[in-house]
Design a protein around this nucleic acid. Structure first.
Length: 756
DNA sequence: GAGTTTGAAACT
DNA sequence: CAGTTTCAAACTC
């Protein structure tokens, strides 16, 4: 029955008929996507969607079957002889209406896939393109659209080819509904998750990819080892899932079945075609798929691993080795954290030396560090770089380090779960307040890593490139201090003040703040602390603390924070980062001796900072043009206060510690300032807002808190504070954040389940 | 990128 | 503790 010619003709005719049919027109009218010629669709699909050579589902049999199926159905490809494989099984397996619907989808997928499988010339190109497609949100979106479009067309065509014209309309409608739902899901996920969100599609895609892989014998072996693109996508999806782990996991699990369904669906058409089926193959395919899904479900997998996988897809073994090396570094030094960053490849190379430095330090720390200042070093270093280090570092800071490591491995690496991350961060902060900013950075880093992870796969996308460049630039430009005369042994040096060793990115001269001079560093620290025990303490203190320490009633406002010693600004009006209060995102307090204070976060004289909340972020963003501060106030009234430290870092990209921030957040922050339009598509922004804005710091809450509750309270909530406050005062805020994020997955899941 | 401004840190 | 100097970040051009 299935001579290539026949199939081809049938497909072609059906396709043309379908296009002319009212249903098709209706679909087109509904669909935002413009109809694409079949050939074009294939092409675009190939280029955009399936680039990944490696796949979990590398089973040759499956692949061959898939290929054959596809070929038999749609493609005129001479290879068709392979077609018959699945035919019988389909008939046997499903007969009900659901089956029909499924078959439609399958047919659609097949149609989409077929071109690929048929086009062998493209196969060689796959490896290159593969990595790109999954990661880039944009690319994914496009590809998904294309896929959908093609599906719509193909779906109609395939059934007709099977002489099911009577059911075509019904099917198409169902199919269209499905497509719409899927599309919505895809959009939701893609917009938020950017990475291969349409995992369902991806699953099917994976199959296609596998089929390609089969052609490439050399890669077959690798396939087993190599990470499945779909898996990666899935993992990324999981990672990106909201904080509500349990819920998300459930959703994922529920979803995964659909993926299985997809596989069966694909076979459906074949069954109808009456071709011979290989039940064993089918079973195997299911097994493989299920196994792959299970693999995907293994959330515990470290993020680094994920990244590694992602890179694997697109890169050679050597690359892989490099990654592994980086992973090893992760274990030991903060630098490794870079491996967590998506664009690692570049970063890794760039940072290798850097990594070594930290490692070194860690080594010293283990044996040598007394723990006085060093623990700060370790902690700060870890967080500052925005990379999660499993610090072997300091004996003294062991617990802290452990927490971090756990966070990195579990929370971040595995799921990038913001909630978890925040929790970890919170806990971490409790331990190490000194590194407020850095912790924030870490948090941002989490987000960044998430976003990065999404884009990781799509290396070709402009976005990805940009991001990569940013990362690289950061890594290269992650200069911290620029000390010329202090030898980085005074508090002038930001690195030293933060308890960090200077690293390569620093532009300091005659730097002694390095592991090799650890003794000197420690001694200097000791001297400084002897003069001022709080010299290395966090400059910004949580409200509770500050209130306690300074007896400042105004600081009792929830989520409020104050600079430890207060500023002494005279000319900056506390509106620039010269002011440490402003820089720390906190209002001035009675401790400040500033003149003409206009601190947006809270004036010394008790001026309500509420007015500035929005402006501040803007001011920071714009490098403080006070003129512009109120400019968009109305527009951004919803905006939360973003700690200047964070913003400044990202905006300037100067400080390495903020590297993560710089990379990811910067855009996010910028966008984040456009709050009123809550753009789901821009997940980074979303996350940031959620994380940055403490529960009680929402505009309404702020106002309420400020005026009635604490008349004197000048400040709302500094970003710093958010984290801390959440950790100590309100865990609820964190939980809420999670809830918000959890919203995303729900929509996607629901439609699928309903349809299925 | 160079120069200026600024305010914290260090010093007296 | 106050005043001055030093310093490096922040900022401007």
């Amino acid at each position: 029955m299935d001579t290539p010619d026949k199939t081809h003709i049938a497909a072609t005719s059906s396709l043309s008929k379908f296009e002319d049919s009212p249903v098709f027109n209706y679909i087109n009218s509904l669909s935002p996507i413009d109809p694409v010629k079949f050939v074009q669709t294939d092409h675009s699909f190939n280029s955009l969607s399936f680039t990944s050579p490696s796949s979990v589902f590398a089973s040759p049999q499956i692949i061959s079957h898939r290929e054959s199926r596809l070929k038999s159905i749609l493609s005129p490809d001479p290879l068709k002889p392979e077609l018959p494989l699945y035919a019988n099984g389909n008939k046997t397996s499903k007969t009900d209406s659901e089956t029909i619907r499924v078959s439609d989808q399958c047919a659609e997928q097949l149609g989409v896939l077929t071109p690929r499988s048929s086009a062998r010339g493209v196969t060689a190109e796959l490896p290159n393109t593969i990595k790109c497609d999954f990661g880039s949100p944009a690319s994914n979106w496009v590809s998904s659209d294309l896929i959908e479009t093609s599906r719509v067309r193909e779906g109609g065509g395939v059934p007709s080819s099977f002489a099911q014209s009577s059911k075509v309309n019904l099917r198409e409608r169902q199919h269209f509904k499905n497509e719409v739902n899927l599309r919505e899901i895809c959009r939701i996920e893609q917009t938020e998750e950017a990475a291969g969100l349409d995992w369902v599609s991806l699953v099917s895609d994976v199959d296609v990819l596998d089929s390609f892989n089969i052609e490439n014998n050399s890669e077959e072996e690798q396939d087993q080892e190599t990470v499945d693109p779909g898996t990666i996508t899935f993992v990324s999806t999981v990672l990106q899932l909201p904080q509500d782990n349990a819920t998300d996991l459930e959703n994922l699990v529920s979803i995964s079945p659909s993926g299985s369904c997809k596989l069966s669906e694909i076979r459906e058409p074949i069954t109808q075609s009456g071709e011979i089926e290989d039940l064993q193959d089918k079973d195997q395919a299911h097994d493989i798929l299920s196994s792959s899904l299970q693999k995907k479900l293994v959330v515990t997998e470290s993020r680094a691993k994920v990244d590694e996988k992602g890179e694997k897809r697109g890169q050679s073994n050597s690359k892989h080795k490099i990654r592994r090396r980086c992973l090893v570094f992760e274990t030991g030094s903060h630098k490794k954290c870079s491996s967590l960053i998506p664009s690692q490849t570049d970063c890794e190379v760039a940072h290798e030396e850097n990594c070594l430095v930290p490692s070194k330090s860690s080594g010293h720390s283990l044996s040598m560090l007394p723990g006085v200042g060093l623990h700060l070093n370790a902690v700060a270093a870890t967080s500052k770089n925005g990379r999660f280090v499993k610090c072997k570092t300091l004996a003294s800071g062991r617990q802290i380090i452990c927490m971090r490591s756990s966070m990195s491995s579990d929370s971040l690496a595995s799921s990038q779960n913001t909630l978890i991350g925040s929790s970890a961060l919170n806990s971490m902060e409790k331990v190490s307040d000194p590194c407020d900013n850095k912790i924030k950075v870490v948090e941002n880093a989490l987000q960044t890593s998430v976003s990065v992870g999404r884009e990781e796969d799509d290396q070709n996308s402009p976005r990805k490139k940009r991001f990569k460049q940013e990362l690289v630039g950061e890594s290269q430009a992650c200069k911290r201090c620029n000390c010329k005369r202090s030898k980085c042994l005074k508090l002038y040096c930001e690195c030293f003040a933060a308890g960090l060793y200077c690293v390569e990115p620093c532009s300091c001269l005659d730097c002694f703040n390095k592991p090799k001079h650890e003794d000197t560093v420690l001694e200097t620290r000791r001297l400084i602390e002897s003069r001022n025990p709080l010299a290395f303490a966090p400059k910004v203190i949580r409200s509770a603390d500050s209130a306690t320490e300074f007896g400042d009633e105004t600081n009792k406002t929830p989520a409020s924070a104050r600079h430890k010693r207060g500023c002494n600004c005279r000319r900056s009006s506390c509106l620039k980062k010269y002011c440490e209060c402003f820089q720390g995102g906190v209002g001035c307090s009675a401790s400040c001796r500033c003149e003409g204070c206009q601190n947006a976060f809270g004036r010394k004289d008790g001026f309500e900072e509420t007015e500035y909340k929005v402006e501040e972020s803007e001011a920071y963003e714009n490098n403080d043009s006070s003129d512009t501060i109120k400019k968009d106030e109305d527009e951004h009234s919803d905006v939360l206060l973003i700690p200047p430290s964070i913003i400044s870092r990202f905006s300037r990209g100067k400080r390495l510690g903020s590297s993560l921030l710089d990379v990811g957040p910067s855009p996010m922050l910028c966008t984040g300032l456009k709050p009123k339009t809550f753009d789901i598509s821009d997940q980074p922004n979303f996350q940031i807002r959620l994380q940055v804005i403490p529960e009680d710091e929402t505009p309404q809450n702020r106002k309420s808190n400020c005026s009635p509750t604490s008349p004197n309270s000048k400040r709302l909530s500094p970003p710093h504070h958010d984290i801390r406050s959440s950790s100590s005062t309100s865990s609820s805020s964190t939980s809420r954040k999670l809830i918000l994020r959890s919203i995303r997955p729900l929509p996607s899941v629901t439609p699928l389940q309903e349809q299925q």
